[in-house]
Computed example of a mutant assay.
Amino acid sequence: MIINESKSYEEVEITINCSHIDNQLARLIKQIRQTSITLTGTRENRTYSLLVDDLYYIETVDNQTFIYTEKEVYECDLKLYKIEQKLSKTHFIRIGKNLIVNTAHIDSVRALLNGKFEASLTNKEKVIVNRHYVKDFKEKFLS
């Protein structure tokens, strides 16, 4: 790894030189992209800029979008599909009609009898991967 640190640089620039992008490198690239994206959330009449890397999952209930971090819940004005587009090149993936999850915060997954999966997050919460989304979820989570 080569790191050049100098006060002459105004911005951080990352260059990756490789013969091909394998699964491990692809995950690293997603992680780097994810650290620079933020979403705006509101809690107790205060607005916060939330680093996407700190988000566990995002859910829509009764046309209201909620952002979940390790311990807090925020409201968001964006529709879930807009957030999904913004996070398309990150570790987030849709796992239900009203739910997208950050696969970087998944601790384990187990299959359920009805074709669904249950994902246990690192904060001990559990989310359900609906049957319709299982194939894409497995590809993204296991890659």
Score class of each variant (00 low, 15 high):
E11P: 01
V127L: 03
S49K: 07
K79H: 12
T65R: 06
C76Y: 13
E10F: 02
N63R: 09
D54F: 06
R43S: 11
L87N: 09
N102W: 01
I83D: 04
E125C: 04
E70I: 08
D62Q: 03
T15R: 15
L142A: 00
L25Y: 09
F117K: 15
L99E: 06
L25F: 08
R110I: 14
K140P: 02
T65V: 12
K30W: 05
N102G: 00
L112W: 06
D62K: 08
G41W: 02
E84R: 05
N4Y: 13
S143M: 11
K138H: 04
E70F: 10
C76P: 11
T15K: 15
S36A: 07
H91P: 04
I29K: 07
H105C: 08
K126N: 09
D77Y: 14
K97H: 13
Q24C: 12
C18R: 11
L80A: 08
K124W: 10
L39H: 02
L51Y: 13
D62A: 04
D53V: 00
E70L: 09
L55C: 00
I37L: 12
I2L: 10
V73W: 08
S19L: 13
F141L: 05
T15S: 14
I37N: 06
V12L: 12
K82Q: 13
D107Q: 14
I106L: 07
T38M: 09
T15H: 14
F66W: 09
T122K: 15
E13Q: 03
L39T: 01
S8D: 07
Q64C: 10
A111V: 13
E125F: 11
T38K: 12
S49D: 06
N17Y: 14
E72V: 05
D136G: 09
T40A: 10
N23T: 13
I93V: 04
T122C: 12
C18A: 15
Q85C: 12
T103L: 04
T40L: 11
E70M: 09
Q34T: 01
Y68D: 10
I21D: 07
Y48V: 03
I58R: 02
S19V: 13
Y48D: 04
E139C: 08
L112Y: 03
A119S: 06
N4P: 04
F141A: 02
F137I: 10
I32C: 14
L25G: 10
K126F: 05
V101L: 06
I21T: 14
N23V: 12
Q34H: 00
T122F: 10
Y57S: 00
